[in-house]
Computed example of a mutant assay.
Amino acid sequence: MAEQSSLESILDDLAVPVLRVEAGSARVLFANAAVRALPFSLVPLDPTPVLDSEGVRLTPEQHPVARAARGESLEGVLFHWDTPEGRRAFLLHARMDHSRSPGVATVTLQDVSPWQRAEADLRRALGARDTFLSIAAHELKSPITVLQLVVERLIRGARRETTFSGAQLAERLEPALRHIRRLGMLVQNLLDVSRARNNRFELELETFELGSLVHEVREHFSAQAEQVGSRLEVRDCPPVEVHWDRMRMEQALGNLITNAIKYGAGGPISVQAERVDGVVCLRVEDRGIGVAEGDRERIFNPFERATSGHRVESLGLGLFIVREIARAHGGSVGLTGRDGGGSCFTLCLPVRATGEYE
């Protein structure tokens, strides 16, 4: 008896859940502190759902403790418990001791939930990486192909000694310039991701009037919005002087507008600004497909895109770069849904940024 008490004292100190049950009846003879701390009971009749490795819900007779009490050998078998805090995964080990009558089955559990979550995160990251590489290859190849075609046409014309007028030459070079800018933007985005991940997102701060920047960005993207049937308007932007990196803010606002054009379903897009004490908030609203609440944080991560029925090819870097520009200015960016459908992105920055990461 003293030996049994000593054994249970040792088992009680273990971090691994250990349960000892009577053979046949599954009556609990001993449960260590780790078992008692679980957010569910290991008794087969406990109402907490238990599932096998395939996610199939088990009956009380199929409960792993009931099976262990029947003498089944369970070595490293995976089971799931659906708890109020979420699904927990455990590898279960069970062994029957027949030296006593009735026998005693010892059941131990190993919590592998963190490993499963890490594996799921890794698989998702690898999937996002593969998608990114595929889209990046396509995005980088397209402007290069156009540049090649333009240069080849010019070379053929030169070999035929065709005399181009200045207007004709400009017309043929215009697509090349447009795609050179696009290629430069893609490369800049990739460089920005590397800098942001190493907290080397440096700013060149200057004082300027915000309204002029907002209207310049609107003019730049109006034609792109019109191509998809959207109307881009500045609803409200009071005059306010800010101390920001102007180029980076053009980039951040441009990324938010580009996102609204892609996912705005051809509806109107509005930009507005508001100053509250020492903070300026820029809002970009669309009336498109919106973003599910569960995706509203994730889409600010690199290489991420919201899932929807609409297939939009993108590198998944634009919103991440917006977030890092906001962080570098000491601010933040967030997303909420709009009444009536669509999305509202809000970029809030201190009027005078310091350029130090928080």
Rank of each mutant, 00 (worst) to 15 (best):
L92N: 06
S270R: 10
F30C: 01
H243C: 12
S308A: 12
V240N: 04
S332N: 12
S5K: 12
L190W: 04
H215V: 01
T207R: 10
A125C: 08
V35M: 06
A170P: 05
V351Q: 03
L19W: 00
V242G: 04
E204R: 15
A273D: 03
P268T: 02
G330M: 06
D13N: 14
V107M: 05
D12E: 04
L205F: 07
V50F: 03
P39Y: 06
S165R: 11
R197T: 10
L58A: 05
E219S: 14
G288H: 05
V240C: 11
L109A: 08
A353M: 00
S6I: 15
D46R: 07
A23E: 13
E204P: 04
C344I: 03
D13Q: 15
E293M: 12
V214K: 06
S5W: 13
Q4D: 12
G355N: 02
T336I: 14
A306H: 03
D286M: 05
T346F: 08
A128W: 05
G334R: 10
L315F: 05
L19C: 06
N259E: 06
V271E: 05
R67I: 02
G309K: 00
V65Y: 04
R182F: 03
L169T: 13
V217N: 03
G331N: 07
P49G: 10
P143S: 02
V107H: 06
V50A: 00
V50M: 07
G294L: 12
M1I: 10
L45C: 07
N301S: 15
P350I: 09
V217S: 01
E293I: 12
